[in-house]
């Protein structure tokens, strides 16, 4: 089912395929923690092609491959490669395809991963293309929710912060709606979810502007960073950022089992004091990036079926 499959967009995956990834990811958790040793990917080579800076995504793919006994080659600074000499992406991909068994690509332009998948014989995994897709992030986000609640359907999930430019929230909103979550959107008026994303959702989400409106009955808060660059006026930024951040006071009003997630890096949208409350899940969420990527690599390489 998975051998040779490209993971370019979350829309490439059916619900049962997501469940399969989650099932394998659960088995990978002790290996990701280093408590158990397995070398499923011994002899395999991953090409990690980062045309744009990234910390978590790049390192978690590396950790996933290393933990399973595979090797990683690639770059995180394209200026040191022949791309800076004007080589096309198609040619770069053909070359790395010849050197490896699976390709992971992060690129500043939208659609770059689809192009890579067109030219590579081996499976291609999209690790983010411009403002476009970032399917492995979406998978680890959903996995985090499933690990906590056992399901996604019926949960009240509030996506908050920068819903306009925040890449992770776009594919997440669409995926959650297809998994029958009750999706709520909370953002300043200038950073609203784009209409074309809402059009792709299975059900129309509820839209809010005040955290108070959703604080008491939300099951999952998915917080994103509001970037200073989006506001020409710094005082406007301070005002807006303040009303979309979570403090210890907010936590007191939350449901007992509510969880707080964040794709990280965070700046000040979640007060560090919140880290020590039983609601914080963002570090665990970041950890899940490793078992999820281990599962995807093992599945697309056909080592696990």
């Amino acid at each position: 089912m998975f051998k040779g499959k490209d993971i370019v967009s979350i829309r490439d995956l059916r619900e049962e395929e997501m469940e399969k990834i989650f099932e394998i990811a659960r088995d990978m958790i002790p290996i990701a923690k280093g408590e158990k040793r397995e070398e499923y990917l011994r002899g395999y080579v991953l090409a990690n092609l980062f045309f744009e800076p990234s910390t978590r995504t790049r390192m978690s793919f590396e950790a996933a491959m290393d933990r399973l006994g595979g090797k990683v080659l690639g770059f995180s600074n394209p200026s040191a490669t022949s791309i800076s000499k004007g080589e096309t992406l198609a040619d770069t991909i053909r070359m790395f395809d010849a050197y490896s068994d699976v390709i992971v690509i992060r690129h500043p332009l939208e659609g770059a991963a689809r192009l890579a998948a067109d030219f590579a014989e081996h499976p291609v995994i999209n690790a983010g293309d411009g403002a476009g897709q970032h399917p492995t992030q979406t998978l680890l986000d959903i996995f985090t929710i499933v690990q906590e609640f056992g399901h996604v359907d019926g949960l009240k999930i509030t996506l908050m912060g920068d819903l306009r430019y925040g890449r992770t929230v776009h594919s997440l909103a669409i995926a959650l709606s297809y998994l029958d979550a009750d999706v709520h959107l909370l953002s300043p008026r200038t950073l609203k979810m784009p209409k074309h994303i809402i059009r792709e959702m299975k059900r129309e989400p509820e839209i809010h502007e005040r955290l108070e409106d959703v604080i008491e009955d939300t099951d999952v808060f998915y917080v994103t960073r509001i970037q200073k660059e989006r506001f020409p006026d710094p005082t406007e930024y301070m005002k807006v950022a303040g009303s979309y951040s979570i403090t210890k006071e907010h936590v007191k009003k939350m449901k007992d089992r509510a969880i707080i997630m964040h794709p990280l890096p965070r700046v000040n949208e979640i007060d560090p004091e919140v880290d020590y409350t039983p609601h914080a899940r963002y570090f665990k969420q970041a950890f899940y990036g490793v078992p999820i990527r281990m599962a995807i690599l093992a599945l697309v390489l056909g080592v696990i079926e």
Binding site: T88, L89, A90, H107, P108, L109, E110, G111, A112, R114, L115, D118, D129, G130, A131
Partner: peptide, 15 residues
């Protein structure tokens, strides 16, 4: 052609 200037198809790629 795609109207999105940030789309990979608007680069000098063989597609």
């Amino acid at each position: 052609k795609c109207m999105n200037p940030r789309c990979i198809t608007n680069q000098n790629e063989p597609i």
